[in-house]
């Protein structure tokens, strides 16, 4: 067999916000079907990395390729790549003026050119899968946070993305709702969806990740399988971080 080329390749990426260096020489590659969880303290650059992968943030240097194609400049080609990269945000960002069904069908209709009936049938399947089919006609403001986030996951999945990015998907949720969102994510992971997940949910990292990436100060300090990372972190910084968050 030919060696498989990774789906997402991040090479020597640097990113500044003014004087502050948010990302330092980041290298990371993610294979098809792999689930990579990125953890680290606030301000470690993990969200920025996630946002760079579909170019919601621009790079100052380095390259990112998705399925062999380097991210282009702003324009139609970039929009085409973004269509293949699903993104789930911390604050859900459902379109406030559209109901759930229209949120999910907008991309398939306007970007993929599907017919309304086809897009709606597929959207209803996805909404069933994330457990909110009965909320298809509701507006985002009428839903709980957990429901909104599951709708947002359905919206991203409706594009049949090659990879799903999750930018702290449960950080704005109550504990009960965290579970309902994580359940959906675990299911996606077991189905073989390629996922890059920025999160503080260590349980999810342990159970669903193939690799854990630990970031601090804009750098990747460790990349390891979850068992190895959680049981015997190599760097002092990671040991310190884990001792703090796992203390309770």
């Amino acid at each position: 067999m030919m060696p498989q080329t990774p789906l997402v390749v991040v090479e020597q990426v640097n990113k500044y916000f003014g004087e502050m260096q948010a990302l330092k020489d980041i290298n990371l590659s993610v294979d098809k079907g792999e689930v990579v969880v990125v953890i680290g303290p606030s301000g470690s650059g993990k969200s920025t990395l996630c946002r760079c992968i579909n170019r919601l943030e621009t790079l100052d240097s380095g390259t990112i390729t998705i399925d062999g194609v380097p991210l282009p400049e702003e324009g139609k080609a970039l929009a085409a790549i973004r269509a293949d990269v699903g993104m789930v945000f911390q604050s859900f960002n459902l379109f406030a003026h559209k109901n759930v069904l229209k949120n999910v069908t907008m991309g398939p209709i306007k970007v993929r050119g599907k017919s309304r009936s086809e897009a709606e049938a597929e959207a209803m399947e996805l909404l069933k899968r994330v457990g909110i089919a009965q909320k298809a006609q509701s507006y985002p403001a009428e839903l709980s946070g957990g429901q909104q986030q599951r709708a947002a996951i359905a919206r991203a999945l409706a594009m049949n993305p090659k990879v799903m990015l999750f930018d702290e998907p449960t950080s704005a949720l109550d504990p009960e709702m965290i579970k309902e969102v994580l359940d959906v994510m675990v299911e996606l992971a077991t189905e073989g969806t390629t996922m890059i997940v920025v999160t503080h949910e260590m349980g999810f990292a342990r159970s669903a990740a193939q690799r854990v990436v630990f970031m601090d100060g804009g750098e990747i300090l460790e990349i390891a399988p979850p068992q190895q990372f959680f049981d015997s972190p190599q760097t002092e910084r990671a040991q310190d971080f884990l001792s703090k968050i796992l203390a309770h």
Binding site: L56, A83, F89, N93, F95, K110, R155, A156
Partner: peptide, 24 residues
């Protein structure tokens, strides 16, 4: 976030403006 979500599903700048941002 509204515009970011729109761009993230692959809408172009004009579509983002016309379908998501302007109506709101």
């Amino acid at each position: 976030g509204q515009a970011e979500a729109a761009r993230a599903i692959g809408l172009t700048f004009t579509q983002t403006l016309g379908l998501v941002v302007m109506p709101q």
